[in-house]
Each structure stands twice: as C-alpha cells, then as structure tokens.
C-alpha cells in the first residue's frame, strides 16, 4: 500500500511536469499548426536562467533563492518564447514545414550553446530545507517536492482553464483552434493570439524547467529534450489542441511510467508509454478527446 501510494504520487508529479510542457505545445499546435521543437529549449534556458539567478542572490535565505529562481525561469521562458514567435515563426506563416524546421534549428543551437556555456554536468539547485523533507501520506514518505510540483501544475491548469473559458483572448484562442479562417474572416487579429499562446507556452515550459530542477534536485542540458518527447506523446494521446485532454493524458502517462519502471525492469515504463501511444493511435487516431485532426 505504501509503495503504491509513493509510486502514485511520484507518477502524478512526473505527470505534472509533462502537463506543464504539453499544455503549451498542445495550444500552439491547435491554434497555429506548429510542432514546436524549441519547447525543450525554452525549458532548458529558463531552468539555467533560474539557477543562475538563484546563485546571484546566494546570500539570501533558501526560500527566497528558490522563489527568485522560479520567477526568473517563468519570465525568461515567456520572453524567449515570445521572441521566437516574433523573430523566427512570424516570417514563415505561409510555410508550415519551414516553421518546424526553424524550431528544430533553434533547439539544436540553443541546447548546444547551454552545454558549451555551463558544461554538461548536472547543476545542483539550492532548495529550502522543507522541500528536501518528506510528508507521510497513508504510511508512505512522500518527498515534498512531488507535492509541490503537483500543486503548481494544478494551479496552472486552473489558470489556463479560467483564461480559455472566461476571458476574451481565451475565447479567440478556442475559436481559432476550432476554425482559424473563420476567426480571421470575422475581423479578429489572430496574430496577437499566436504571440500570446507562445508566451503562455513558454512561461509554462520555463516553470516546468525550474520545477523539474526541484523535482530531481539538479538541472542538466539534456533533460529538456528527453521530457519534450514524452510531452509530445502526451499531446497526441490527449488529443491535439485540448488542454484538458493533455492533463488527463499527462496523468495516465506519468503514473503508468512510474509503476512499470518499478515493477518491470528499468526502462519498461518508458517503453510501454510508446506502446500505449501506438494502441491509442490504432483505436482512436484523434486521441482521447476525439477531436479528429
């Protein structure tokens, strides 16, 4: 029972990280039909920016250091993503494959630059003492970072749903996902919505970057890319363009991965996630939420 509780909550924590990356990817794809490979670069750059900032305020209390790291990561992730959209994606609106290629190039260049600048060894993130402790839930000692990551993901999910359902821009984004041409025909500037979803996606990815650093205790240049691939899987299983679908799929993928990695051999969990993807595609090519592409 304790093992199951531990695995379940750890899996939810992992799912929370996947969700933070996948939500932005899914919105960007739904609205713009861009497969954003640079999302892993937003994640990585933001994580390193947060780590550097927390080093700059090294004299402060660990709590403050960590909060500075989170704030800087979110801001840098959002700014980097906005800049990417304006400078690299915008000139290529008419060329979809070109947009994907540019994000591929950006991901390669940025991650190798980070690796060159900071080295490929993991960097330890300064954490407040209470985060490294554990909380006992149904007899299992759950690391507090897992709970923290889940809480953040829930908050982001609530904010995103509020934004999409209750604000004017959210309405435009939802309408654009349904039918972009019609929104444009009604005289609404969809381009601003494009920049907006990139900014939101980048902020969420930046948050994921620093939270992954909190979850694992360290940050390294390669993690963004490997998490991005699982986030892609989450996006497809959840149904492209659907934030709720991504949330459900992220939980399924994260928990499944944890359980099978524990009860099977190492790597079985990662492998089964891909298998799950194949099965979902065979049964429902549009993903859980059923929106056909």
């Amino acid at each position: 029972m304790t093992t199951i509780a531990l695995l379940l909550i750890t899996g939810l924590g992992l799912g929370a990280l996947y969700f933070l990356i996948a939500a932005g990817l899914s919105l960007i794809w739904g609205l713009m039909r861009v497969l954003n490979f640079a999302h892993g670069a937003f994640f990585t750059v933001a994580a390193y920016a947060g780590w550097s900032a927390s080093g700059l305020v090294g004299g402060a209390s660990p709590e403050l250091q960590w909060l500075v790291a989170v704030a800087v990561a979110v801001v840098v992730g959002g700014a980097f993503a906005t800049l990417t959209e304006v400078v690299l994606i915008r000139p290529l609106y008419a060329r979809h494959v070109g947009q994907v290629l540019v994000t591929v190039g950006l991901a390669l260049a940025t991650i190798s630059l980070v690796q060159g600048g900071f080295g490929s060894d993991p960097k330890r993130l300064a954490l407040p003492a209470w985060m490294t402790g554990t909380t006992t839930i149904v007899g299992a000692n759950i690391p507090n970072t897992r709970l923290l990551v889940i809480a953040f993901a829930l908050a982001v999910f609530a904010l995103l749903i509020f934004f999409l359902r209750r604000t004017r821009f959210g309405l435009i984004v939802r309408a654009g996902v349904e039918n972009r041409a019609m929104v444009q025909a009604l005289g609404i500037d969809v381009q601003r919505a494009f920049t907006l979803v990139f900014a939101i996606g980048g902020m969420a990815a930046g948050l994921a970057g620093i939270l992954a650093g909190t979850y694992y205790g360290t940050i390294d240049p390669g993690r963004g890319t490997s998490m991005l691939i699982f986030a892609f899987i989450v996006v497809i299983i959840g149904g492209l363009g659907s934030v709720t679908g991504s949330a459900v799929a992220a939980i399924v993928v994260g928990v499944l991965q944890q359980f099978l990695n524990f009860y099977g051999a190492a790597g079985v969990g990662d492998f089964s996630v891909v298998l799950l993807l194949a099965i979902v595609l065979l049964v429902r090519p549009g993903g859980f939420s059923g929106a056909s592409t």
Partner: peptide, 23 residues
Amino acid sequence: RVPLSEPLFLLGVLFIVLVLFVP
C-alpha cells in the same frame, strides 16, 4: 569562444538562416 567551440550551435544557426533566407 564558447559558441565557436560548439559545432552543433554553428550548424543550428546556419540551418535557421538557410530555412529563413535560402529555402
């Protein structure tokens, strides 16, 4: 020195430039 020491960085930038300006 750091950017010039990373072949993937140079190739990535070259790639972006080609996609943008030399389709």
